[in-house]
Design a binder for these strands. Structure first.
Length: 207
DNA sequence: AGGACGATTAACT
DNA sequence: GTTAATCGTCCTC
């Protein structure tokens, strides 16, 4: 896709990414579920507290890949969107593998059925073979680790949206988008609430 | 320098 | 339905 596709408001891009096809080597995935993160205006975004070495790519121009490591074992992939500097991105949450099944199964041996190959953000990044070394890659040049292409037309009436999965803040923002009835869409799960500790509140010691 | 937590998954009961 | 795995990142002191 041209950079102008990613340069639009992130909610618009998230909606339009459904049905698009992402390709990494021989593996192609048709996107069925994504989430929008609106940078500095979104407490749930990694970019909310300003740029860090990890999130620097989000603060650059749209059309680049942001890959992060989480839970000590998983990679997740985002596409940087919106006007330059807004630090917005779309998390690729799930999709249907439509080509390269053999390589996809090698990359994700734990998947028991093909439906599970790219069901969930870490599985999707895994099936695409993306890791931290791919973060910062340009999506709009040939030969990169990931390319995004238009898929078959999606009926806008099939697009649903609702709260994002697994987050503890900004839970009221309905910025998760998915295709109704797709078996690869992950089930909703609220963020796990944990008790705040003294160290986190910064109030452990008396003043 | 120390510690809490995570845009999750797989393997359990 | 529950929970362990596992470590980079970032906040706090």
């Amino acid at each position: 896709m041209p950079r102008a596709f990613f340069a639009r408001p992130v909610l618009e891009v998230a909606h339009d990414l459904l049905g698009c096809v992402v390709c990494a080597g021989p593996v192609s995935v048709r996107l069925t579920e994504v989430e929008a993160y609106q940078g500095l205006d979104d407490p749930a975004s990694h970019a909310f507290r300003g740029p860090t070495p990890r999130t620097q790519v989000m603060f650059g121009p749209p059309g680049f890949l942001y890959v992060y490591f989480t839970y000590g074992m998983h990679w997740c992939a985002n596409l940087v969107c919106g006007p330059n500097g807004t630090a917005s991105a779309v998390l690729l949450r799930a999709g249907e593998v439509i080509a390269g099944h053999e390589v996809a199964r090698q990359r994700r041996p734990a998947a028991r059925v093909d439906r599970d190959l790219a069901r969930g953000p870490a599985r999707l990044a895994g099936v695409l073979g993306l890791t931290g070394t791919d973060s910062g890659a340009d999506l709009c040049v040939r030969g990169g680790p990931l390319s995004v292409m238009a898929g078959s037309t999606v009926d806008s009436a099939a697009v649903r949206n609702g709260p994002r999965v697994g987050i503890r803040v900004a839970t009221e923002r309905p910025w998760r988008f998915w295709l109704d009835g797709e078996p690869t869409v992950s089930t909703f799960r609220p963020g796990v609430l944990r008790k705040r500790t003294n160290a986190q509140t910064g109030r452990s010691k008396l003043k």
